[in-house]
Design a protein around this nucleic acid. Structure first.
Length: 332
DNA sequence: AAACGCCGCAACCGCCGAGGT
DNA sequence: AACCTCGGCGGTTGCGGCGTT
């Protein structure tokens, strides 16, 4: 037996609330308190469904709602909490007195998300967007040139070497307890760029691309790859299939804020001893054309100041390991 | 001044899970 | 176990305001 709808749609009003309706709802709740939303509209003389009444009350009429623009501190808090909680708007709202989950969600989607994208930060992972790490082109290049496949297989990523020493010395929960510091840290992350690759062969391309990424990572305390040596951790069964998308900034299992739930509650967190977060390749693959900063759309990845030694060093840092059992057809 | 498009926000929809009966 | 209510979520829509042409 199917579930009955929350209300009878027939004859019930929809759309914007009138002041009279608001008054009826507020008056009724002031007298009887909220609750039993199903019967409330009938008892209050409203031609609305209970769900609509509940939303109107919780999102607009509740007396403790703070209206108006979000302050800079509130915005920082939202970003910080979102990096911990993900899209758990109600949990975020619970830590922002006077703000509702719907309001925060709208504000996130219309302001913060755009701002983060503009700053070159993936609003899902809170990591710098690695738009330029065009893995699909790298892989397809390798597939078109089987002689390079062997070279690709020798590439490995040693994630902890990519870490900015800044973060290695950071107590992340302590960092998060200082929103401004956290924010400044995030702001240090350079925007990702688009690039053209040279025609000098796959390894040269890869080296350049990877080098640019390393340059980005070198100042990036927030993320790195987690390409561990198993196909399920790195190689998707389909290029369009996302890996685990981790929305969070850090991976420690606890925070200094007792109001913040244990991070282990959220599946996206890594264990504390990893000291790094997973990186969503999906976020990279899905936003290749959204590089927000035209200033960074330089035609090359190569840093003019980098030396051959540095390039060699970077190449050795970036190692992908593709298991022998990998079926190339999976990529096709 | 009118038309148009974009943007922000309130509100809705469909679904799900928790908890109570 | 089945059903029901409620609250929460992500995604989406509709509309008013505003800027541009």
């Amino acid at each position: 037996m199917g579930r009955v709808p929350c209300c009878d749609k027939n004859g019930l009003k929809k759309g914007p609330w009138t002041p009279e309706e608001d008054h009826k709802l507020v008056s009724f709740i002031q007298l009887h308190g909220p609750g039993n939303w199903r019967s409330l509209p009938k008892n209050a003389g409203l031609q609305r469904c209970g769900k609509s009444c509940r939303l109107r009350w919780t999102n607009y009429l509740r007396p403790d709602i703070k209206r108006g623009r979000f302050s800079f501190e509130e915005e920082e808090t939202i970003i910080q909490l979102h990096s911990i909680l993900g899209n758990k708007w109600s949990a975020i709202a619970a830590r922002l007195p006077g703000r509702t989950d719907n309001e925060i969600k709208n504000y996130w989607n219309t302001h913060i998300r755009k701002r983060l994208l503009r700053d070159g930060i993936d609003p899902v992972t809170h990591a710098p967007r690695l738009d330029l790490l065009d893995l699909s082109s790298i892989i397809s290049s390798a597939l078109c040139n089987p002689s390079t496949l062997l070279n690709l297989s020798t590439l490995k990523l040693q994630e902890n070497q990519l870490f900015n020493p800044l973060l290695q010395n950071q107590d992340v929960p302590a960092l998060l307890s200082q929103p401004r510091q956290f924010h400044n840290l995030v702001q240090q992350v350079p925007a990702c760029t688009t690039a053209t690759t040279s025609t000098g062969g796959f390894i040269d391309q890869t080296t350049q691309v990877m080098q640019a990424k390393v340059e980005g990572f070198s100042s990036n305390p927030t993320s790195t790859f987690n390409c561990q040596n198993s196909p399920e951790n790195f190689v998707p069964s389909s290029l369009n299939e996302s890996l685990v998308s981790l929305p969070n900034f850090y991976c420690n299992g606890t925070t200094t804020d007792p109001t913040v739930p244990e991070l282990g509650e959220y599946s996206g967190f890594q264990s504390a001893n990893n000291g790094y977060q997973n990186f969503s390749i999906d976020s990279v693959m899905s936003t290749p054309l959204l590089s927000p900063d035209p200033l960074n759309s330089s035609s090359t990845y190569l840093n003019s100041s980098s030396t051959e030694d540095e390039r060699e060093c970077y190449s050795s840092l970036l190692k992908f390991e593709i298991p022998e059992s990998l079926d190339i057809d999976d990529f096709l």
